[in-house]
């Protein structure tokens, strides 16, 4: 279907954004890369009064190392995330996620801020943000507010932004760790039927601060607490991985969807758990 009638305004500064919010209030919808929003217009799933194009606001761009934090501007496109040297060095999980996100033509426009704001439960970047313990930096006329990623995704397609706030950056704490992402999709580039973004450290042979975050299996990215507790403080072995897999019965209650029933998704989550964690074992120690 053709897009609904609407108005369009191009902001070139954050001051423009605040002025548009003040003048037009809730009828304003932020347009960043548009790779989800514009598709929803075609389905008439959203009918914004005004699209506010923020892609020409320079403050929302750029990737910088600030002390122990990697700050990634909200307008960073997926293609940039995949090739940026600072990201590859300090948050390789994000670079690793990029080939899983849609297709090249979409990765050339879609942005990290847009992906987080849209909060699709099957999307890669929200799960990575939670796995990396990232912080979403929101701004409004009141200034900046930092929201932990683990508190940002509040429900299906819902986030913790207040009216009048936009995402300006994502901050990733830098710490040496193992991190990996994998997913199962019917076709390369499709949304995942199930996926896993995982991060942990190993200290003196024992797992420290594991974060197993599953996507495509809930109403948002799911941090699997019981599975993480099954690994915490133990050596990474076939036994501890099997314990984490078993704990997913407690952690995950995937809604049935077009792809299949809950148990199939739980099965895929267990398979992905073994695939991701086995890669960090010596070959002789792998779990099934």
């Amino acid at each position: 279907m053709k897009w609904p009638a609407m108005t369009y305004h191009r902001a070139t500064s954050l001051a423009d954004v605040w002025a548009a919010f003040a003048a037009h209030g809730p009828s304003v919808t932020i347009l960043a890369g548009g790779q989800t929003l514009l598709a929803t217009l075609a389905f008439r799933l959203s009918e914004p009064g005004m699209l506010l194009d923020i892609t020409r606001i320079p403050e929302l761009r750029g990737i910088t190392l600030q002390g122990q934090v990697l700050r990634i501007g909200a307008l960073t496109r997926h293609v940039e995330l995949g090739r940026d040297l600072l990201v590859r060095q300090h948050a390789p999980l994000l670079a690793q996620a990029v080939p899983h996100i849609a297709h090249p033509a979409i990765r050339n426009r879609g942005t990290i801020g847009g992906s987080l704001a849209y909060a699709d439960p099957a999307a890669e970047l929200p799960a990575c943000a939670v796995a990396l313990d990232a912080v979403v930096v929101a701004a409004s006329t009141a200034g900046e507010r930092r929201i932990p990623a683990s508190a940002f995704f509040t429900d299906l397609l819902q986030n913790a932004l207040a009216p009048g706030e936009i995402i300006v950056a994502v901050e990733i704490p830098i710490q040496p760790s193992l991190a990996a992402i994998d997913e199962v999709a019917r076709r390369s580039g499709d949304y995942a039927m199930a996926g896993l973004a995982a991060a942990m450290r190993v200290h003196d042979g024992r797992v420290v601060a594991p974060r197993l975050v599953y996507f495509g299996v809930g109403r948002g990215p799911v941090l699997a607490g019981a599975a993480c507790r099954a690994l915490e403080g133990r050596p990474l072995t076939a036994e501890s991985i099997a314990a984490a897999q078993a704990a997913l019965t407690t952690d995950l209650d995937p809604p049935q969807d077009l792809h299949g029933p809950s148990e199939m998704k739980r099965h895929l989550a267990r398979v992905l758990t073994a695939r991701v964690l086995n890669a960090w074992l010596r070959p002789t120690e792998m779990a099934a």
Binding site: Y8, R10, L31, G34, Q35, L38, A39, A42, L51, D53, T55, A105, I106, N108, R109
Partner: peptide, 10 residues
């Protein structure tokens, strides 16, 4: 890019 996912006005 996907031409159907780009606003001409932008």
């Amino acid at each position: 890019v996907r031409g159907c996912l780009v606003l001409a006005a932008s």
